[in-house]
Write a protein that binds this DNA or RNA. Structure first.
Lengths: 339, 339
DNA sequence: TATTTTTCCGAAAACGTTTCCGAAAACGTT
DNA sequence: AACGTTTTCGGAAACGTTTTCGGAAAAATA
């Protein structure tokens, strides 16, 4: 199990360590024959370089850290696939840490990864994160960080976003055009920009059609199935039934559907439903869920590319970029009032 | 951004590096007052130890590698959550690599992680993996490795398994007791032990009820939605419609359901369906899918515990353990012929 | 032949730790 | 006072690389 080191190879060939290193790294200053010799014996002895030693010397780790709030909904795993596709090709590895939607864990994770000398971070904030001073400090110090989807206005760094406003607008408009008069919005937690944007889209769509929105139509909800289920159950108990729901994401929409079906309401006849952040499930459930599709894979790839770009330019001037990706509204039967 | 090192602290206090190190590590050989002093100034200067340097010296990285075939179905992410819950508490981090169900990638990933000095590996094999000599060599050399679910008989190391045979038997028996006479099995790829075990359960359940199984009743299928969809579509085209299907996992069952519904067949009236490896979706789709639930989180936790145990005992005698976890058959309407 | 240039290689430093070894000082015992 | 023991600290090696520097030998030039 003992690892063969460059030293072992050198000793075997009666060469200096530096010579072996040069041979392996294909540097100048080396005679062709010795290089061949070294390469061959290294191969035979099963030598493989020790990345840790190299990291120590180069002061970087060829690893990038990914900090995400959770791993349960399909969204983040899909983004990670995208990240990995880009990053792995370039010889980087990713360290993934979950924050479990908890701001303390998040801070802890970021610090751990930083002290582990990751070359950069890709982060999506917890729904509870309010204090971003540490992240801000890192960014101000020039540490490469890319944030996707869940961000905070204070963080001036490269960001990959989705046009939440636009697609929330379209989704709401779709419900209005279906003839819905009393649409409720299950919104995400308030301190995420995306929640505010989606709400604004909801509001502005109503404004376009001169429809008033009462405060009671907007319900702060979480992002999990049980959150949507809980809020819908509350509405049902208080006999306060809308004719449509625009949920901030698919799991909460699905939760609402579960509660409605359990209580004998028909979808979409009694209540039409539209979700957000298309998940694989949307197409499979009963009835199939109309939802805004986010390009999860592309989000990951873009974030990864931005990060690598930033890591590589090193001492140059860094200009934070914000890339807004496009989506689609997949209309299915959960929102089609008239067939 | 420059990291504060132990050297900086030493210089500031006019102490030797070794003294500072001792203070920080709370070793003997140090006077109380100097220790306090060092600790305080280190804190003030924002010192944090450099893990990379420590890894180089200690010849281990406090990281464990996780190699999984894919990330798309919910199963593996859920297992990873379990792994992380255990591992993170003990100060370890995980490096996750996907093999994309490709044996070459898998080997590459394992080598990368190994040369990266991970302290151990948690692996679930690709469905294509046939040659396990490299893994075997690692295991024989005493490198800590735990395998879960997808294994290979040649690998003598700690393993976390699910009793595939037993639950496939129960699942099939359930269909037989529903009165199904012509049950097809969408089995997983042949070189995975779990596929063979599930098939055997299927066969033995038939044997118990003195029912014959024709070779045509067993169809080799993949693990993804589109695999099940494709195979079912083939059956429909050739008018070869069973009265029930026992699929090797949920996604392939769901694929079969999609194809059946598209072609106007009723579930469970025309074809009853049972899946395997309960996913969140099972409860949400139409009709809700009867499925064998695997304790994904527990699988991950157990694997992690076994690995940490093996890592820690170091030079002691290592006895590979195989832990078989229990599951449950969640019966839902997709398999209930008579209501 | 003498001088310069080029080619090739070894020595050593560096990255940031930990730890072994030994030295100095403090202390206690005869 | 002489000696042994303990406490406290500094020096240096080690982990495995890469890279700079310098020097010897070979080759090219004068």
């Amino acid at each position: 199990m003992k690892h063969v080191t460059i030293k072992d190879v050198a000793k075997k060939l009666n060469l200096a360590i530096s010579t072996v290193s040069r041979a392996l790294n294909d540097k100048y200053d080396i005679r062709k024959e010795t290089r061949e010799l070294v390469l061959q014996t290294a191969q035979e002895m099963g030598y493989s370089p020790n990345p840790i030693a190299r990291h120590l010397l180069k002061q970087c780790s060829n690893q990038i850290g990914v900090v995400i709030p959770e791993f349960i909904n399909a969204f983040f795993p899909e983004v990670i696939i995208g990240i990995q596709e880009v990053v792995q090709k370039e010889g980087y590895q990713i360290l993934i840490m979950q924050s479990y939607e908890n701001a303390e864990n998040e801070l802890e994770n970021i610090k751990t990864l930083e002290s582990n000398m990751v070359d950069g971070l890709i982060v999506s904030l917890t729904k509870e994160t309010k204090d971003v001073t540490y992240l801000k400090k890192l960014i101000d110090n020039g540490f490469p960080i890319v944030i996707f989807n869940r961000t905070n206005e204070l963080l001036k760094t490269s960001t990959v976003l989705f046009d939440d406003y636009k697609w929330a607008f379209f989704a709401t408009e779709h419900l209005i055009l279906q003839g819905c008069k009393n649409i409720y919005h299950f919104m995400g937690t308030k301190n995420l920009t995306l929640s505010l944007n989606r709400k604004q889209g909801f509001l502005d769509a109503h404004k376009k059609y001169k429809m008033e929105v009462l405060p009671s139509q907007i319900i702060e909800c979480g992002f999990m199935i049980h959150d949507g289920e809980r809020e819908m159950e509350k509405l049902i108990q208080s006999k306060d039934i809308p004719d449509a729901i625009f949920a901030a994401n698919d799991p909460s929409a699905i939760g609402a559907m579960k509660a409605l079906k359990r209580n004998g309401y028909k979808i979409p006849e009694d209540v039409a439903i539209v979700g957000f952040t298309e998940s694989k499930v949307a197409d499979l459930i009963d009835p199939p869920l109309t939802s805004v599709a986010q390009p999860t894979n592309e989000i990951g790839q873009t974030a990864a590319r931005l990060l690598l770009q930033q890591i590589r330019l090193k001492e140059g001037v860094f200009v934070p970029q914000t890339i807004v990706l496009n989506g689609a509204l997949n209309i299915r039967s959960s929102s089609l009032k008239k067939i």
